[in-house]
Design a protein around this nucleic acid. Structure first.
Length: 269
DNA sequence: CCTTAGTCCTGCATGC
DNA sequence: TGCATGCAGGACTAAG
């Protein structure tokens, strides 16, 4: 599932290819893929030039020359590609045709991905917390917490930090030796500091490896990431912890799976 | 304020 | 082989 590093990888690949293209036509093949009024969506895009592409949290942001913004959230199985594989043809949900004859395809097996228009002047993604790629803003976001929610749940809350998902939350908690069910307010300042250092580290490292491919994630070029070979806990249930050899366990927290080492990440009382 | 359950979706693994 | 079941999960919503 694409989280921040996977989205960042896609944006970096799209940046030189998509910038400057003018939209000739837009096809919406699955109606719910585009949130809001389809006519307004098409009217804003058709005839406009894409002048900038950026990432915010797990969102891809495409800015038009007229000041509008299109955000794309890939959710679990979304892909953005200029070439379609045979298998992807049945799962294409939206197509952007450009004046130069090229087309950008939004492919999404499970139809959870969402594309929406943010008209010029409207605040963009106002609900999102700070970017988690540097220690200082991460520590600022985490150290002020008085919440009794599990620290893992807090890390997945996009209003606290924008872009951390299940894989990297588990990985950062492992490196910081914090049990995922620990109430956020009970994590010591010292451990929060450590966690604030590891969150940017696991994300930057994953970007360096072009993201993590478990099953579905593919970059715009169609290639898989390599970060799955560097994971310590995610998807490693029953395998030995690289530090102490204890079997990695999985628990369910707020209906999501959390992977951790029961010895290295002791539950606090 | 917080949690849980349900919703959206389909492919794939599992079990009988 | 075939059919039913459960699981994966990001963001959102309703109910308690």
């Amino acid at each position: 599932m694409p989280e921040l590093p996977e989205v960042e990888t896609i944006v970096r690949q799209l940046q030189p290819v998509v910038t400057g293209k003018s939209v000739k036509a837009v096809s919406i093949l699955w109606h719910r893929t585009v949130t809001g009024d389809h006519d307004k969506f098409k009217a804003a895009l058709i005839g406009s030039r894409l002048i900038r592409i950026a990432r915010r949290g797990k969102y891809i942001c495409l800015f038009t020359g007229t000041g509008d913004c299109i955000t794309i959230h890939l959710r679990m199985t979304g892909r953005l590609k200029f070439q379609l594989d045979e298998k992807e043809k049945n799962y294409t949900r939206a197509v952007f045709d450009f004046q130069d004859g090229s087309s950008l395809y939004f492919i999404d097996v499970r139809k959870f991905g969402r594309i929406m228009l943010w008209p010029k002047g409207s605040p963009l993604l106002p609900q999102l917390g700070p970017e988690p790629l540097e220690e200082t803003p991460v520590f600022a976001a985490l150290s002020g917490l008085t919440s009794i929610r599990a620290i893992k749940t807090v890390l997945l809350d996009q209003t606290v930090l924008a872009g951390v998902g299940n894989i990297y939350a588990d990985e950062a908690l492992y490196l910081a030796k914090i049990h995922p069910a620990t109430p956020a307010a009970k994590v010591s300042k010292r451990k929060l500091k450590t966690l604030s250092r590891f969150i940017p580290e696991v994300l930057q490292s994953a970007i360096h490896h072009d993201g993590t491919t478990i099953i579905d994630y593919r970059s715009t070029g169609g290639s898989e990431g390599r970060n799955q070979f560097y994971l310590n806990v995610y998807g490693r249930i029953g395998q030995p912890c690289g530090s102490c050899g204890t079997e990695i366990q999985r628990i369910r927290l707020n209906n999501r799976s959390s992977h951790f080492c029961p010895k290295c990440q002791r539950r606090q009382r």
